[in-house]
Design a protein around this nucleic acid. Structure first.
Lengths: 319, 319
DNA sequence: CTGAAAGCGCTTACAG
DNA sequence: CTGAAAGCGCTTACAG
């Protein structure tokens, strides 16, 4: 059974190809009877127009690209899931690639997307990504996590999350509130959050107790230990993994009553400490916003927007 | 600056379009000098042939589809990462969709892929997915986790993982080895592993102690508690999340010395119990195998293979 | 309201 | 070794 073309449908319907094409494109000028007849035939024989042939006439293949840094990041795959879902519903193809925090790889990916002629891209930014050419994709670009002049972005408000964490602990009687975070060399995950902590300390005239480290659970364990030694009676954890590590340490030492507040939340953290005060950075919402933003741009709204998704504060109930 | 076409290159080079096309397609019949000249011009002006126009002439757009059940599953995103990487290296587009354990959604996705004319698909199977039409995509289909006659598959050997867990605990002196698993209604994650446990019990003439539950961390906590009450002096955890829950429970109760063996391993589990005996189901390898398998099929190797990836046993060192 | 014709950017059999 | 021509399956301006 060979592939059906518009010509076959035209013959079956006894009309010209142009008319079939018009029906396919919902041209209202076609007589209603003709329309219904053609539609019936199309349905009957299961004809699907070739996206490729349409693309030849500047009806671009509806597709977008998205570059995450790591698929294994739960924050990113939450966002990714929303983005895929959104564009899938709008009948877009979604191409997914991983940059692995490598700016060269990111650029290769972007180049590839240009070649594939996707209509727009969304990508997760990171500290050393370099500047992105904002002319690409007719400016249909949305960055997540990082801002760049001239490009729309969606970011989380992690500094506010830190601030809330601080204040929560403060109002619950903590005196030496420590910060367990990522090295300052990482702007988004490190510096921004650290600065917010320092500012909170200044506001409350408190002496900072700081431990900066890498991203792994084990770093959280070590960091928490060090902070306790330094006299902390409450800890703000700057990332999900650090929170995980810290909570495990506390559990192991039988110190689970030590107040902890966390930037970012997931099931893992929840089960380790059901009563934790946490700021949900809302990555699902971030993804949704980014998708909507890109979609609007592609529809012609060409002003740039920097959206900030506010954290959701959750003082979780005891199980 | 308008889009360059093959005609522009032909004019610049002073040759016919056909010749340029031949160079593009590495036709050896073109004189070497002509080739180099054309290639230089192409490079110079940065001409990229239109994939769409090529597709019109049955040079299919190189693309494959992949359907995961949940992007948030670390097992799946490990495999996904490998698959994307592999096909990206072979210059394929990769379309990613989520089925969410919904067989209707899976079928919609598959239909979409058919329409998009991807050359093949890989998807993660699940218990109620229903039969997949093996004629689709010229038979270029690879299923992960589930087997179906006539379709190539890649599965993990989780029963063997359970067996090893049992034997490990046994040889380390445990007498009442319990099993914490998922309900039998889930074939892959539930029944298969449970059966392996029962068989091990029979072999070792041991009375089974079983607790079956859902997939969440909290279920692992509850289950572990129940099993201890039932007299277990060692526990085999059937999934990563259940392991996580169980270990948290033990940590909380100060019973971290209770021997636990786990089917599946990740950083989270590692940090909770660095010395745990675990069977790594090797999902990265699963993804790689699936990718290679699909690629071979697309290259014309049309016999079906059911690959089983063996678990990797890890008795982890103390931190 | 509808059809014939030209065109989108390539490939390739054919003729030279 | 190379070019002119036909064709891939659509869209759309043009003429009716």
């Amino acid at each position: 059974m060979k592939k059906l073309t518009i010509r076959d449908i035209a013959e079956l319907a006894g009309v010209g190809k142009s008319t079939v094409s018009r029906v396919l494109n919902n041209d209202p000028k076609v007589k209603t009877e003709t329309q219904t007849k053609i539609r019936e035939i199309i349905k009957e024989v299961g004809y699907k127009p070739s996206a490729v042939a349409r693309a030849m006439n500047n009806q671009p293949i509806k597709s977008i690209g998205i570059v995450v840094t790591r698929l294994s990041s739960s924050a990113e795959n939450q966002a990714l899931s929303e983005i895929i879902d959104f564009f899938h519903q709008h009948e877009y193809e979604v191409l997914v690639l991983e940059s692995r925090y490598d700016s060269e790889l990111l650029n290769t990916h972007i180049e590839l997307m240009v070649q594939k002629q996707v209509e727009g891209i969304i990508f997760f930014g990171f500290t050393d990504q370099g500047l992105v050419n904002k002319e690409l994709f007719n400016g249909n670009i949305v960055m997540i996590a990082v801002e760049q002049p001239g490009i729309s972005s969606v970011t989380t408000n992690s500094p506010l999350a830190v601030k809330h964490c601080f204040e929560y602990l403060k109002t619950h009687g903590a005196r030496n509130i420590a910060f367990l975070g990522v090295h300052e060399s990482d702007i988004q995950t490190g510096k921004l959050r650290l600065d917010a902590y320092k500012e909170a300390c200044a506001t409350h005239k408190t002496k900072p107790i700081i431990y900066l480290t890498d991203m792994e659970y084990a770093d959280g364990v070590k960091g928490c230990k060090a902070l306790l030694k330094a006299g902390a009676d409450a800890v703000i954890c700057g990332t999900e993994r650090l929170t995980g590590g810290a909570l495990v340490h506390l559990l192991r030492e039988g110190k689970s009553d030590l107040p902890v507040a966390a930037v970012g939340i997931n099931d893992y953290i929840r089960i380790l400490n059901p009563g934790i005060f946490a700021a949900d950075l809302q990555y699902a919402k971030v993804g949704k916003e980014a998708a909507v933003l890109l979609f609007q741009k592609m529809k012609g709204n060409n002003k740039n927007t920097d959206t900030v998704v506010e954290p959701l504060m959750t003082e979780l109930a005891e199980l």
